[in-house]
Simulated scan of single mutants.
Amino acid sequence: MAEITAALVKELREKSGAGMMDCKKALVETGGDVEAAMDWLRTKGLSKAAKKSDRVAAEGLVAVASREDGKGETAAVIEFNAETDFVARNELFQNAAKAFAEAALDAEGVEGVNAATLSGGKTVQDEVTNLIATIGENMQVRRVARHAVSEGVVASYVHNSVAPSLGRIGVLVALEGAADKALLRDLGRKIGMHIAATAPLSLNTDDLDPVAVERERAVLTEKAKEDGRPENMIAKIVDGQIAKFQKDVVLSKQPFVMNPDQTIEQLVADSGKEFGAEIKLTGFTRMALGEGVEKAAEPDFAAEVASMTGG
């Protein structure tokens, strides 16, 4: 029997698109014969995954997970995609999304999560491959984010929830401080609801992407010119509009949706006084399902019929 080397497993994985553990098992079952192993995988339905890898997967779920680490907490949010919303209602898919979010608590980025080992001994990537073969749709862990605080909480909020910790928008809010965790968690959930609704671009003004600011400045400058504003006043006008833009998209400066007379910055400061301990909002992540994915255009059957009938 041929030695089942890592190179042999890699070769079979690249040819079949199946998971590493399945490839190794196939090679063991076939005495290291790659072609026979390919046939073995096909009989098990495991090589189908490769054929589906180029399909657009923009549906699925966002999942969150968290754990207490002494006085602090760690939390993660992932986006696990499939091709249809129907699959997102599948219990196998939902359980996998939860398990992958748990794995993200100790992994860095998508590659780290895909390489993480689950409780059953398979890696996340192997489990994804098996799900593709079982359910019949392309799937992928597309995005991962993680926050941790040494003291305090990383609160979570899930919008359009389909099950606990699963939905279409997931938000993490990192709050550092020695205040009661239940109070901090409630505050974090409220801020999470605000973030889900307003989609801020950054925590503070200094964190705002300079490219986004300059893009906005260019648009506002052109608009001011088209509106016939005096040339010598345009820069000052645009500066004022940029300040308003920053207020609109920077979380700390945004008016709190539950009390527009109070900014998020003020909410955190006032809550600290109320809870008897200073609180710092150190970070957040808002992850919405399918953001930035180019979906294939749905066929316009009405237009097709009209063109065929001359209507």
Rank of each mutant, 00 (worst) to 15 (best):
S161K: 14
G192S: 11
D126F: 08
N204C: 09
I191K: 09
G170N: 10
S156A: 14
A197C: 00
T205S: 13
V144N: 07
V154C: 08
H194I: 05
V128S: 04
A182Q: 14
L175H: 11
V171F: 07
A145Y: 13
V211E: 14
L172Q: 08
A179Y: 02
N138G: 02
V149I: 09
M139D: 03
T117N: 06
V141E: 04
V154I: 11
S119L: 06
G170S: 07
V149Y: 06
G188A: 09
G192W: 10
Q125V: 13
T198A: 13
I135G: 05
S119R: 02
V149K: 11
T123I: 12
A196G: 04
M193Y: 05
L203S: 03
S156H: 15
L201D: 02
S165D: 15
T198D: 04
A133V: 05
N130H: 12
N130L: 14
E127F: 10
T129V: 07
G177C: 10
V141Y: 02
G188T: 09
L201N: 01
T123W: 12
E151C: 10
G121E: 05
M193P: 04
I169C: 10
E151D: 12
S119C: 00
I195P: 05
S202T: 03
D126A: 14
K190F: 01
A179K: 02
R168Q: 13
A199Y: 03
L175F: 12
I132S: 04
A179S: 08
V162P: 08
L184I: 12
H194R: 02
V158D: 07
P200Y: 01
P200Q: 04
I191D: 08
G192H: 10
Y157S: 09
N204L: 12
L183W: 04
A178G: 09
H194P: 06
G167Y: 07
V124T: 11
G152H: 07
S119W: 00
V173W: 06
R146S: 13
T205Y: 00
V211N: 09
P164W: 05
L175N: 09
V153L: 12
D186Y: 03
V153F: 12
V149F: 07
L208V: 07
K181V: 13
A196C: 02
R185M: 11
T134C: 00
D206I: 13
N204S: 14
L208Q: 00
L184G: 09
L187S: 10
L187F: 10
G121P: 09
T134V: 10
S156T: 15
A163K: 13
K122N: 15
A199E: 07
D209I: 01
A179H: 02
H194T: 03
V154P: 08
V211D: 11
L166A: 07
P210D: 00
R142W: 01
Q125R: 15
T123C: 12
A197R: 01
S156Y: 10
A179P: 03
V128T: 14
G177T: 07
L118D: 04
H194Q: 08
V173F: 09
V162G: 03
G188M: 08
T123N: 10
S150F: 03
H159L: 03
Q125W: 11
L172F: 05
P210C: 00
G120L: 01
V153Q: 11
R189E: 14
L203T: 00
T123G: 13
